[in-house]
């Protein structure tokens, strides 16, 4: 299935929860969705017979200035098609439903996005830091991050 077909199919079910499809060759095309309906959308993307996206390639958190973004790269092992799903949330309230129960691999990806960007995945069973020490402060991949001066008595920079 091509991205625009997937977009039409999703649109017919979720109407205005699906915001837009952006096609801009040679970039990948992506579909922007409403963060609040993300879980249901992902669920049907995995389970509907014409989608069958059973393989979550990657989950990325992004800092976009005002907003935080979450990007899902999906792939279907059976039907061999791909799609990119994006959702944006405001920085003050970065709440995104967790898709960990749909694709188990999202568990660590979400923890990483929480660790480095600070996206709050709701419904994740154990959302703690994964790469940085558990008592680290701040989210390093945010654009306005400055590293702390000292950590446990050691100079950082």
């Amino acid at each position: 299935m091509l991205p625009n077909e997937i977009f039409e199919k999703l649109r017919s079910v979720y109407s205005d929860q699906i915001i837009e499809l952006i096609e801009n060759h040679p970039s990948d095309s992506f579909i922007t969705v409403n963060a609040s309906a993300l879980f249901e959308i992902c669920h049907s993307l995995r389970d509907e017979a014409f989608f069958m996206f059973d393989y979550l390639m990657s989950l990325t958190g992004m800092d976009l200035g005002e907003n935080l973004g979450v990007v899902y790269h999906l792939y279907s092992m059976q039907l061999k098609h791909k799609i990119v799903i994006k959702a944006f949330v405001p920085k003050e309230q970065p709440k995104v439903p967790s898709v960990e129960r749909i694709w188990r691999t999202a568990d660590w990806h979400e923890r990483e996005a929480y660790d480095l960007i600070g996206v709050n995945f709701e419904g994740h069973h154990n959302l703690i830091r994964i790469l940085l020490p558990y008592d680290w402060e701040g989210y390093p991949l945010r654009k306005d991050y400055t590293a702390p001066e000292m950590y446990h008595g050691m100079k950082v920079s």
Binding site: L132, P140, Y145, K155, V156, S157
Partner: peptide, 11 residues
Amino acid sequence: GYHVLKGVDKI
């Protein structure tokens, strides 16, 4: 490298 110790001789 915000998470890298700049030289093991610091410790």
